[in-house]
């Protein structure tokens, strides 16, 4: 524990060598699965999430709209987890993602149809849920489903370190790693980048200062904007490449 505080105090660095606001690199692949209408793989650091979109197709007896399934591969984390406990959490996460996207998508353009979004976490080394949201956004772009905005998400964490005099210093860290998530508080935040409005946030922790909430949200918004820039750049590059291959542009 002392090493963490020394690193932060003396060199302003986190355990993996990043500063508090540095995001891990994001990379992106689109159109990865031929069987799906849209698909993508988003990698944040070493966290890797696959997103597949099926549909829109006739919903039959099901409810029209968006249906999300979220699951984590058994080998995603280093720990063996009880499948039952996992399943309960996955349902909650899937519900959050579903509500995040139903408002962003122009679902009224697809009446009586169902869109299935399947998310699979292949490797979770921190910030799996935000990576899943980013993967879902890019898969929806790949599937050509109209959206109001690219919903982007990031994880924000609190690192609490004890100072030599015994008091506790709280640092806000963007894009937490698995190691940081085990140690302290972290929460996902999803925003609409063009308006800077908050779509989803899930924070439950007694904050040491009352003004900390505003700071946390601010860091969250900034990080999401950065993530959005990265995603847009890479999506444009990938789509441009594809259009070039198809002969749509010179």
């Amino acid at each position: 524990m002392s090493k963490v505080s020394d690193l932060l105090r003396e060199r302003n660095l986190r355990l993996d060598g990043r500063t508090l606001t540095t995001h891990r690199p994001i990379s992106l692949q689109m159109d990865t699965h031929q069987t799906a209408s849209g698909s993508s793989i988003v990698v944040t650091g070493t966290t890797r999430v696959v997103a597949n979109i099926y549909g829109p197709y006739d919903c039959g007896l099901n409810e029209p709209g968006l249906e999300v399934t979220y699951s984590s591969a058994p080998f995603a984390t280093g720990m063996r987890r009880r499948p039952q406990a996992d399943e309960r959490r996955n349902r909650e996460v899937a519900d959050l993602i579903e509500h995040t996207f139903t408002q962003a998508l122009l679902l009224e353009t697809f009446p009586h149809s169902l869109i299935k979004l399947e998310l699979q976490v292949l490797c979770d080394s921190g910030a799996a849920l935000p990576t899943a949201i980013n993967a879902a956004t890019t898969a929806l772009i790949d599937a050509g489903i109209p959206m109001k905005d690219m919903v982007t998400a990031c994880e924000v964490g609190l690192i609490e370190v004890t100072r030599p005099d015994g008091s506790i210093a709280t640092h806000i860290a963007a894009d937490t790693s698995a190691e940081e998530e085990r140690r302290g508080v972290h929460f996902p935040i999803a925003v609409m980048p063009s308006t800077g409005e908050v779509v989803a946030v899930m924070l439950v922790h007694t904050l040491p200062r009352s003004d900390l909430l505003d700071e946390l949200l601010e860091v969250g918004l900034d990080t999401c904007k950065w993530t959005h820039g990265q995603l847009v750049g890479q999506v444009k590059a990938l789509v441009g490449e594809k259009m070039h291959v198809c002969g749509m542009v010179e």
């Binding site: 509500h99 408002q103 409005e197 908050v198 779509v199 899930m202 924070l203 439950v204 909430l213 949200l217």
Partner: peptide, 18 residues
């Protein structure tokens, strides 16, 4: 003190509303 903020999706809200 505020010790939690939960917004499970839905239409977006501006940060000052929070």
């Amino acid at each position: 003190r505020c010790c939690g903020l939960i917004k499970p999706g839905g239409p977006p809200i501006p940060p000052d509303t929070i």
